[in-house]
Design a protein around this nucleic acid. Structure first.
Length: 214
DNA sequence: AACCAGGAGACAT
DNA sequence: ATGTCTCATGGT
């Protein structure tokens, strides 16, 4: 049952075509972003970055990451065992430092409970991540995609604006509807998801600094 | 000198 | 379900 109607099939193919076209267009315009993939051997650093960047510019996050790395503290076990005042001091430049220190610690304990990062990356579920206080949908998906190498598309405010500007969504869709739109329209590829989201962010930043150039 | 970043949670309506 | 407030540092 539920064999797709011609309308449904055409609608699906059309969305997929638009999505690929958008990807190509952004890729040509901005070039490859290569956010985290190979540059970072430490995958916990990606998890930390996902939390630290909540509501703050990446520039500030880099300072906090640099502090943690400089203190030999960029690891789940180290963060899990670190006294809060010390952790707060390290992440202070990223803003919201008290709650971010708490969130990092909760995440570090969760990762540590798997015994190894590899075990965490393989077995942690999205729902389990979402139960951690301070890990919402966007942060969870960013961790799953960029740190765990799993095919979850990351949706942010730029993504909504861009898609509604292109009339690919109406604008009032739920987070997960938009995520599934990407995941169903694109080949199930971690590098593609990662690059596409990064490109959308880059495009969003450009639009902000220069509101008039389409 | 406001304004705002690669958000999320708590709370009121 | 949908708004509004808070969290906080550093760059335009």
């Amino acid at each position: 049952m539920c064999k797709p109607s011609k309308q449904g099939v055409r609608g699906f193919e059309s969305r997929r075509a638009h999505m690929m076209q958008l990807y190509r267009e952004l890729l040509e315009k901005h070039g490859r972003q290569e956010w985290w993939p190979c540059r970072t051997k430490n995958r916990f650093e990606i998890c930390a970055g996902a939390v630290l960047t909540q509501g703050t510019s990446w520039k500030n996050v880099e300072k906090a990451i640099s502090n943690m790395a400089g203190a030999q503290a960029m690891g789940a076990a180290k963060i899990a065992a670190m006294p809060m005042p010390r952790l707060e001091r390290l992440v202070r430049p990223s803003g919201f430092f008290r709650q971010k220190a708490r969130r990092l610690k909760a995440l570090a304990r969760f990762v540590s409970s798997y015994g190894s990062f590899a075990a965490f990356a393989k077995n942690a579920t999205r729902d389990a991540l979402l139960e951690i206080n301070g890990i919402g949908k966007e942060t969870a998906d960013a961790i799953l995609l960029y740190a765990c190498g799993r095919p979850y598309f990351v949706v942010d405010a730029y993504t909504r604006r861009l898609l509604s500007a292109r009339r690919m969504i109406s604008g009032n869709e739920e987070y997960d509807e938009i995520r599934e739109l990407f995941e169903k329209s694109l080949p199930r590829s971690v590098p593609v998801y990662g690059e596409f989201h990064a490109l959308i962010v880059e495009e969003g930043k450009l639009r902000r600094s220069n509101p008039v150039t389409s």
